[in-house]
Amino acid sequence: MLLDDTYQLGYIIKTHGLRGHVVAHFDVDDAAAYTKLKTVYLALAGAPTKLVAHHVEKVQPQAGTRVLLKLRGIERIEEAEPLRGAQLHLPLTELPALDEGQFYFHDVIGFTVVDENLGELGLVENFYELPQQDMLAMRYQGQEVLIPVVDELVSHADMVKKQIYVALPEGLLDIYLKPSSREQDEAE
């Protein structure tokens, strides 16, 4: 399995107990939906592009997005400790289906961003998953423009037309296009 054929489900936070259990964070809405998980692919911190398949013996949801995870062959704390910080991946083919208009970030890279007032703006180049919120990065008039991924600003994606529809607040593009007062001072 190649890293490009997977999505990150979450990561291992720490060990739990002496018998090889680990506590993991699952970046999902409902961790309980993964209790029947059979296999997970680990990308260890020292080799982030190499994936190693591990059979899952048990997934026990805890508070919020945390789960208690038991992997086959990891029987002692000494075997679990090197897994701390490892990313947990699943094949892209296992992504849950979305409702019409919803999208996964990786699916809309290269889509045209269409504003309800300004029309076509540019292409989606990337997404940044920041602690505060996710940001869509688009190229507009040679500048990278970041758009918060919130329902009020990003409405939906049209997978056939390869377009993502937004309602940008007035002045957002100006922030990126007009030079700051410091940049103006440096230019003079």
Score class of each variant (00 low, 15 high):
131 P>M: 02
82 P>I: 01
88 L>N: 04
141 Q>N: 10
80 A>G: 03
28 V>I: 07
116 E>S: 14
176 Y>C: 06
177 L>R: 14
64 G>M: 05
66 R>M: 13
185 D>S: 13
62 Q>F: 09
157 A>N: 04
180 S>R: 09
107 D>Q: 15
140 Y>H: 15
170 E>D: 12
177 L>N: 15
139 R>K: 10
94 E>K: 14
75 E>R: 11
92 L>T: 07
47 A>E: 13
137 A>R: 08
36 K>T: 11
181 S>V: 13
40 V>N: 00
47 A>Y: 09
57 E>S: 11
1 M>R: 09
44 L>D: 09
115 D>P: 05
80 A>K: 01
61 P>A: 06
180 S>V: 06
18 L>D: 11
153 L>P: 00
73 G>Y: 07
131 P>W: 01
138 M>G: 01
57 E>N: 13
78 E>P: 01
94 E>C: 07
159 M>T: 10
186 E>R: 12
85 G>Y: 02
49 T>G: 07
9 L>H: 01
133 Q>L: 14
187 A>M: 10
88 L>D: 03
24 A>E: 03
9 L>Q: 00
108 V>W: 03
37 L>V: 05
19 R>G: 09
21 H>G: 04
17 G>H: 07
127 F>K: 01
171 G>W: 12
16 H>N: 14
131 P>L: 05
79 E>G: 09
154 V>G: 00
183 E>P: 02
56 V>S: 04
111 F>V: 05
145 V>S: 03
95 L>S: 07
50 K>W: 10
122 G>D: 02
97 A>K: 14
87 Q>R: 14
185 D>L: 15
35 T>W: 05
79 E>D: 12
16 H>G: 03
7 Y>E: 03
142 G>L: 06
51 L>E: 05
138 M>C: 04
143 Q>S: 11
61 P>Q: 07
41 Y>M: 09
81 E>W: 13
98 L>F: 09
15 T>M: 05
3 L>A: 04
23 V>W: 02
40 V>Y: 00
66 R>N: 14
59 V>S: 01
170 E>F: 14
23 V>E: 07
129 E>P: 02
92 L>R: 11
132 Q>R: 13
52 V>K: 12
29 D>A: 10
160 V>I: 15
107 D>H: 14
27 D>E: 12
124 V>M: 02
33 A>L: 10
112 T>H: 08
1 M>C: 09
40 V>K: 00
150 V>T: 14
176 Y>L: 05
167 A>H: 13
72 R>H: 12
69 L>H: 02
18 L>K: 10
58 K>Y: 08
93 T>D: 09
50 K>R: 11
93 T>S: 15
160 V>R: 15
168 L>H: 08
69 L>Q: 03
30 D>V: 08
100 E>D: 14
25 H>S: 12
156 H>V: 01
27 D>K: 10
93 T>P: 00
37 L>Y: 02
183 E>V: 09
178 K>F: 11
34 Y>L: 08
100 E>P: 09
67 V>P: 01
5 D>M: 12
43 A>W: 01
142 G>Q: 06
42 L>N: 04
